[in-house]
Structure formats: structure tokens, C-alpha cells
Design a protein around this nucleic acid. Sequence first.
DNA 1: AGATAACCAAGTAAACTAGTAGGGATTAAC
DNA 2: GTTAATCCCTACTAGTTTACTTGGTTATCT
Lengths: 149, 149
Amino acid sequence: MKISTKGHYGVQAMFDLAQRYGEGPVSLKSVADRQDLSEHYLEQLFAGLRKAGLVKSVRGAQGGYTLARAPAEIKVGDIIRVLEGPIVPVECVSEDPEQCMKAEFCITRSVWEKVRVSIEEVLDSITLADMCKDSEESRQNRNFSMYYI
Amino acid sequence: MKISTKGHYGVQAMFDLAQRYGEGPVSLKSVADRQDLSEHYLEQLFAGLRKAGLVKSVRGAQGGYTLARAPAEIKVGDIIRVLEGPIVPVECVSEDPEQCMKAEFCITRSVWEKVRVSIEEVLDSITLADMCKDSEESRQNRNFSMYYI
DNA sequence: AGATAACCAAGTAAACTAGTAGGGATTAAC
DNA sequence: GTTAATCCCTACTAGTTTACTTGGTTATCT
């Protein structure tokens, strides 16, 4: 019941881009440095994200990646689905119309279905803009408490 | 974002035991036959379930396994945690008190935390008794519609 | 021209998955 | 007391996945 480093790092990196949205292309090297990740590994993740239309790339010196849409228009679920594949706790509970033979007779299946829906609800309710907002608030709270120490 | 066959088969098998609760020990062979699973593989799963105190075993001929508690007292989450380990979408978001160094600075972490909580809420809200009840209702609905065809 | 970057293909060590194989110990039924 | 059923235990394994690394090529800015 885990997501892999692809999804984990991918969301971190996309969040990094979101925090710099509107400031021009951001190089993967800078993302890798800030987030302490392998640049070459990030390249692989961004190949997928680009093909899925979540980021745009600019090649050459001073190039890099930018979000293809505003942070408010990109859900964490979008990123996870690209990097981890569809959200499916067990095979017979896909997001697509059913293919499980015993679908209507299988009771355990309804458990996984509920799990799937609940994960999707969480991941699709959080946008990169939400994360930027949380980050800003968390930063201010830290300054605030430091002020009173 | 998947659970393995351990958790999948484990819940199926425990549900099978729940449907026969009070009827004496149920052999893994019969479970394996009904659920179309490998008996030997189930043995491994039940070794863990027994050590965790979710089932009791009776050795020898006419032996088998029974639930250690009433179906209403066993949550799907109990089974999953035994067979899949703790519910932790990414390493730094364990159910135990925190160990992630950057816990308070890490925004993406709060996303995984929400995912973890939502999965736990689902899995801990469903007991084996609930599944038996759903199964009974589903069976009756099928009979009901057949009656009118 | 040279540096900076995205892009691409392939390899790889380690871990994990989903079992299988082969026995031993215990007990009910005959 | 023999047999068959059943749990119990250890080990092995083929295949897949994970989390990268290596080693380039191509495009663009200065």
C-alpha cells in the first residue's frame, strides 16, 4: 500500500515548479538540488509529465520546465496517475468500466472500490496551488512563533 | 498504489471464515477451493494471521482455522496491517509518532498524510460482519430480480 | 565556440512478489 | 495403531519492479 518514489518525487518536483510559476523555465538541476533528488532520475519522470501535457519544456541554455497550466489547474491526482498509473488498489477495481468477471458477486471487491474512491477524492481535492498556499501559511506561522520566542 | 495478493487473498479468506463463523474449524483446503487460491500460499498468510491473534488453529484431521473474535470485532484494516505491514503511502508518513526530519517543513508530506488517514478510515470502518451483511443482501437482491424475470 | 540544458536508450543491482517444494508434527476416524 | 487430514515450518525460485546510473545526442542562449 505504497506509492513509489516516482509519485513521491514527482509531486515534490511539481510543487517546486509551482512555487516558481511565472518566473520562466526552471532547470531540473535546480529542482534536484533544492529537493535533494537525482537529476537524471527526474528527467525520466518529466519525460512522462511532458507527454501527459502537465509541463512544457524549453531546451538549451537557460531552458528548463514550466507548468503547462496554472497551479490551481493541476491536481495531485493528475501527477500520480501519470507517474504511478491508474489508481487501482487491486486489479479488478479499475477506474474504467468493469472487467472483473465476478464483479457483482464479489464482496471483497466493494472494499477495494471504497478504498480507491477515497484515495481519489483526496488526491483530486488537492491542487498545486493549495500546496503553495499551505506552504506560505506554514512559513508565516514559523516566523510568527520565532518573533515571540 | 496497490495492495499485493497477500492483502487481497487474505481478506477474501478471512471473509470466507467469517461466513462460516460458529460452524467449527474451516480447513484451508476448502477455503482455497472456494476462493480459487493456492492452499500452500494461504498457509503462509495464515501463519501471520495466527501470530497476530486474528485466527485460531486446530491441528489434525477435521482441523482448520476459526476467527479468534466475532466477525464484528475484526476490521479489514486489522487484516491488511498484518499482511501488508503498516499503512504508509510513503516512508515518512508512518502511523507511529513522526520520524521524518523535515516533518514540519515538508508540504508534500501533508498530502500523503491525508491519503493515509483516508485509507485507514475506510479500512477501519469495515468489519467482516459488515461484509457478511452485504453479501446476504446482495444474494437476496439477486433472488428477488430472478423472481421477476 | 562553449556552456547549459532538455532529450533518449540502455543497463543494473537489489528488493519484492507470488508463489512452489518438501518435508514434519498433530489429531480424528477407522 | 494405522491412515488420512490438517496445520506448521524452512527454504528455494522465476519473474518483475524499483530506483537509479551511464553515456550519450540535440537544441539554444551568451
